[in-house]
């Protein structure tokens, strides 16, 4: 049997990245400030984690404007959704196995 630990995605070791993905799984598109408020993070901290997720192709970024202010929104990609689901399944399996 395949060891479920292998299916755990390293990227989701971080609770913050896990939190970002959880939010993007149930909300189609979320902007930076709303993410910041929901996860209770500072700008710099959130930005660096978003960057990691984007580099890995798990989320996509759209830059736009609301009036003169920049409005950057984030969306989970199909790859991201798949990776998140696999990660959840792996977590579940590990809990069941140890029981």
């Amino acid at each position: 049997m395949k060891n479920p630990i292998e299916s755990l995605n390293k990227i989701f070791d971080s609770r913050i990245r896990l939190g970002v993905m959880s939010v993007l799984m149930v909300n189609e598109r979320v902007n930076f400030n709303d993410l910041k408020q929901m996860l209770e993070l500072t700008d710099g901290n959130l930005a660096s984690h978003l960057n990691t997720l984007e580099q890995a192709g798990l989320i996509s970024v759209q830059k736009g404007f609301v009036g003169k202010k920049t409005n950057t929104t984030y969306q989970a990609t199909a790859t991201g959704r798949e990776a998140f689901r696999n990660h959840l399944n792996a977590l579940e399996k590990m809990i069941k196995n140890i029981d």
């Binding site: 896990l18 959880s22 939010v23 959840l88 590990m94």
Partner: peptide, 23 residues
């Protein structure tokens, strides 16, 4: 054992974020 607790708490976090961010 601690590993298991870690996973359970991760799942709880996920659930909590999903609920809080959408409702």
């Amino acid at each position: 054992m601690t590993d298991q607790q870690e996973h359970i708490s991760a799942l709880k976090d996920i659930r909590n974020m999903m609920e809080r961010s959408s409702r």
